[in-house]
Simulated scan of single mutants.
Amino acid sequence: MTTLALIGAGGKMGCRITDNLVKATHPVHYVEIYEKGIRNLEKRGLKPTPQSEAVSKADLVILAIPDIAIGKVSQEVVREMKPGAVLMVLDPAAAYLGQLPEREDVTYFAAHPCHPPVFNDEVTLEAKRDFFGGVAAKQAIVCALIQGPEEHYELGEQIAREIFAPVMRAHRITIEQMAMLEPTMAETISSMMVTVLGEAMEEAVKQGVPYEAAKDFMLGHINIQLGIVFEKVNPFSDACLVAIEYGRRAMIREGWKDLYKPEKVYEQIDVMLHPEKLRDLKLEG
């Protein structure tokens, strides 16, 4: 059986994974050093295992910790891992920046949830309100074998399916492609645009539109717009196409797709892990 070590088991992300792993058949060592996290484990009837003990016994180690800490923590963890073991990271950032330590006899694997899709067949209230996934709503995941033997991909995907369950499908991609999906597509672009949608609604409210009317109007139209763009349910009207072009010229700078260039992806991740660098970046154009 595959023995697991979950680092950060009592944290925000770790608790969601812990709740799934307690249902699995694998032996699991839960590692947590912070008092709040330890209390979260106690609520689940679990006791933390010291990191060195857990890692040295594990066939697969999961880092459920913030991206900014992965570089430092991985140095400690990888040093204690046994030959042939697998280190799983849940975000491509640290691996893409080359922050994982060099050790050829340890496998590096990355997995990340896609989160439950907007268009789904969920019927229970619990699943409908499970926006992040890993509880009741089905989601897809993406996986990448960064280094190590090919047979370790299957093991990594299997564990990823368990920690992010229920999983409807898994996509195998490269770590470079995962970095393009997050942060570039999902955070730099998509999350930014969604915050602008929220600001647009708030501006309408400031101009006198009742809040509930503005919210209903915005969310209803977003639903249609997503259906048109991603499900091809209907084309935009001619008048709407004109408005779209007007908005594009007013709000979107030329060359924004350069964000997908490798050097720009690297820059985005570097700034995310070192927020102080954002102050000095020249992004206006």
Rank of each mutant, 00 (worst) to 15 (best):
A213C: 13
M251H: 07
V271Q: 00
V271G: 02
D216F: 15
K257L: 15
G255Q: 11
L197G: 02
A243D: 10
D280K: 01
L241F: 04
F230A: 04
R279K: 14
G255F: 12
A243P: 00
L197H: 08
A204R: 00
Y266V: 02
Y266E: 00
E245F: 01
E254Y: 05
G247C: 11
P210I: 11
A200E: 06
E276S: 01
L197Q: 04
K206L: 12
P275R: 01
E199T: 10
G208C: 09
A243S: 10
Y246S: 05
L278Q: 04
F217R: 01
A213Y: 09
Y246N: 02
V271L: 02
K277T: 13
R279E: 15
Y211I: 10
K277D: 06
E254Q: 11
R279G: 05
E276H: 01
R253D: 03
F230R: 08
L259C: 12
K257T: 13
Y246T: 08
M201S: 03
G208L: 09
H274P: 04
A243R: 05
N223Q: 11
R249E: 12
A243V: 05
D258V: 06
A213R: 08
A239Q: 11
M201W: 02
Q207H: 11
L219R: 14
M251R: 03
M251F: 05
E202R: 12
E267L: 12
A200C: 10
E245W: 06
E203C: 08
M251S: 04
E267A: 11
Q268T: 09
P262Y: 14
F230W: 15
F217Q: 13
G255I: 10
D216I: 11
D238C: 05
P275M: 03
G247Y: 05
D216S: 12
Q225I: 10
